[in-house]
Structure formats: structure tokens, C-alpha cells
């Protein structure tokens, strides 16, 4: 029952998404908007400015280093959250949640 309802709900969504995909530039089109703004700058200047031949590293660690710092903080917080959720640090009160 719920499966049929879900399929019924998702069929219009598929139509909408495919319709939207038809408006996107073709894959591999180098005149697409994604290639228009900062990407040419990175490709033209990254090596001489950052000394990294790998453009992905140049963007990740240099141009957007602050962003990557945030990502690392997210990962670190996720690790701490895992420890706190599972309560593996408090040895004194094992099974505190009454399991």
C-alpha cells in the first residue's frame, strides 16, 4: 500500500527532474555556465600562484583553504559525536541507558 503510494508520489517528481535535466547544458559542453566564472581563472593561474600542478589540490587547500578547515572541523565533530552517542568514554557507568 505505502509502496504504491510512494511510487505514485515519485512519478511526477521523476517527470519534473527529467524536464529540468533537458534544460541543462549537455555533459562535456565547455561553454556551460560551470566553466564560465572561476574555473578558467583556476586553470590559468593555479600553478604559478600556488605551485601545485594538481588543480584540485590547489583549489581545495589554497584558494578554498578556509572551507576545507570547516570540513575538517565537521569530520572531527562527527568523530566526537560518535564517541559521545555511544558513551564509550564513561567506563564508570556502563549500560547507563538501561540496556
Amino acid at each position: 500500500m505505502i509502496r504504491r503510494l510512494t511510487v505514485l508520489l515519485l512519478a511526477p517528481a521523476l517527470v519534473v527532474l527529467l524536464q529540468a535535466a533537458a534544460d541543462l547544458p549537455e555533459v562535456g559542453d565547455s561553454t556551460a555556465p560551470a566553466f564560465a566564472h572561476v574555473a578558467p581563472y583556476y586553470l590559468a593561474h593555479a600553478h604559478e600562484e600556488t605551485g601545485a600542478a594538481n588543480y584540485v589540490t590547489a583549489v581545495l587547500a589554497d584558494y578554498r583553504g578556509y572551507d576545507t578547515f570547516g570540513e575538517l572541523t565537521v569530520i572531527f565533530t562527527a568523530g566526537l559525536a560518535c564517541l559521545l552517542i555511544l558513551g564509550v568514554c564513561d567506563k564508570a557507568t556502563p549500560g547507563r541507558d538501561g540496556a
Partner: peptide
């Protein structure tokens, strides 16, 4: 285009760690 690659690289690692948090919640 290097920009989406850089963004998705971080997205993959963040998805791994958020999956870890979700699994911890499920275990709980």
C-alpha cells in the same frame, strides 16, 4: 573543471563521517 571535483571530494568524506554518526545513533 576542478571546482566540482574539489567540492565533491570534501562531500564524500563528510558523508562518510555523517554515516558514522547515523550508525552510532542506530546502534544506540
Amino acid at each position: 573543471n576542478p571546482l566540482p571535483h574539489a567540492l565533491m571530494l570534501t562531500a564524500i568524506v563528510v558523508s562518510v563521517s555523517t554515516t558514522g554518526v547515523a550508525l552510532a545513533l542506530l546502534v544506540r
